Simulated assay, not measured.
Amino acid sequence: MTLPPRWVITAIWRLHRALVRAGRGRWGLARPTAGGRFGMLRLRTTGRHSGLERAVVLGYVEDGDDLVTLAMNGWSAPDPAWWLNLRSMPDAEVDLPAAVRRVRAREAHGAERERLWELVRGYDGYGRDLDAMAALRGRETAVVVLEPRD
């Protein structure tokens, strides 16, 4: 399985983030459709070194009230900066198509991770073969649970 060149992946990410920012969340965010495509949210974290707000657009699925995403970095080996930020400071906010939600992040382990991995596998968007794409990283991809907080 091959990926497009890194510059193509980065350009697509930047364009998508700019679309969401320009539309103030009205464009580029979506809810997941059961048996269809995953949703798109904007995650706002606090930079672990700078203390500044950082934002990234991510694919997600719903598990009850929780939002579930994968900590991948375009399927390359390093963990994405947003996941490093959340591991340092797990409280964050997500922008959804019609709401802003305060969340606390945690990594799923064991049977919960396996169950959520299967849930994610049921949605289009991460690639036709999620396991083959994840194998490109060379190590286990964290399954991140964003739980509502108040």
Rank of each mutant, 00 (worst) to 15 (best):
W117Q: 11
A71H: 01
R48H: 12
G39D: 08
E62V: 03
A71I: 00
S50G: 11
L67D: 11
G110Y: 00
S76F: 08
T45P: 13
R54E: 08
S76N: 09
G39I: 03
E112P: 02
V56W: 03
H49N: 13
F38S: 15
G110M: 01
M40T: 11
E107A: 15
A92T: 00
L116H: 05
L96Q: 08
F38A: 15
M72V: 14
P78F: 04
A108V: 01
E112V: 00
R115S: 10
V56S: 15
A81C: 04
G59R: 08
D63T: 00
H49Y: 05
G36N: 04
M89Y: 08
D65W: 03
A81I: 02
D66L: 06
V68T: 04
D66F: 04
S88T: 09
P97W: 02
L119P: 03
D66A: 15
H49L: 15
L67Q: 12
S76M: 11
A99N: 04
A92F: 01
D79H: 15
E62K: 07
L67P: 07
H109A: 15
A71Y: 00
M40V: 13
D91C: 12
E118T: 06
E53T: 13
R102V: 06
R113K: 13
E112W: 00
L84K: 09
A105M: 10
R87G: 15
R106L: 11
R115I: 03
W83A: 13
A111I: 01
G47M: 10
A81V: 07
H109T: 14
H109I: 06
G110V: 00
A98M: 09
A55Q: 14
G122N: 12
L119T: 03
L119V: 04
E118F: 00
L41V: 04
V61C: 09
R101I: 00
N85T: 03
L119E: 06
E53Q: 14
G64T: 02
A77D: 12
L70F: 00
R44I: 12
R121K: 12
R104V: 06
D95C: 06
E118Q: 15
G122T: 06
T69L: 15
G64M: 08
W82T: 02
L86M: 05
A105R: 07
G39L: 09
T45V: 06
A111H: 10
V56R: 13
V68S: 09
L58M: 08
S76H: 13
R87D: 05
D65K: 08
L96F: 01
R42P: 05
W75I: 06
A77N: 10
S50A: 14
G39V: 02
V103A: 08
S88F: 07
H109M: 12
L119D: 05
R115M: 07
G36V: 01
E53F: 09
L119N: 08
D63C: 09
S76Y: 05
V57K: 01
G59S: 06
V103H: 02
S76A: 15
G47D: 04
L86H: 03
Y60R: 08
D79R: 13
R102H: 14
E107C: 15
R106V: 05
T46H: 05
G64Y: 03
L70R: 07
R115K: 10
L70S: 07
W75G: 11
L116G: 10
R87H: 05
T69D: 09
N85Q: 06
A98G: 11
G122H: 05
A111D: 14
P90D: 09
A71R: 04
A92Y: 00
S50Y: 07
R113L: 05
